[in-house]
């Protein structure tokens, strides 16, 4: 549930940011959103990995 709500929050932030006006050369082709999407995916996966790691350590602590 937490994962789902997190990803929804992520998407809403992304869409919100994408709604900005884009006139400069940097964004004229629209390809920058591809880079932003990839950044978001990498970050999301690293965070999911950290969450799993944290749960594993918690499990070890509880077993002690």
């Amino acid at each position: 549930m937490k994962k789902v709500s997190l990803s929804i929050l992520f998407l809403s932030v992304m869409l919100n940011a994408a709604a900005q006006n884009n006139e400069s050369l940097f964004r004229s082709s629209g390809k920058i959103y591809v880079v932003v999407g990839i950044l978001a995916i990498i970050f999301l996966l690293i965070v999911l990995y950290l969450i799993r790691l944290d749960r594993k350590i918690k499990q070890l602590e509880d077993n002690q």
Binding site: V13, A18, Q20, I32, V36, L39, F43
Partner: peptide, 14 residues
């Protein structure tokens, strides 16, 4: 949340 915001909005901000 904050890092996600800065990572994404930092790329898109004017």
């Amino acid at each position: 949340l904050i890092v996600g915001y800065s990572l994404i909005y930092g790329m898109l901000i004017n």
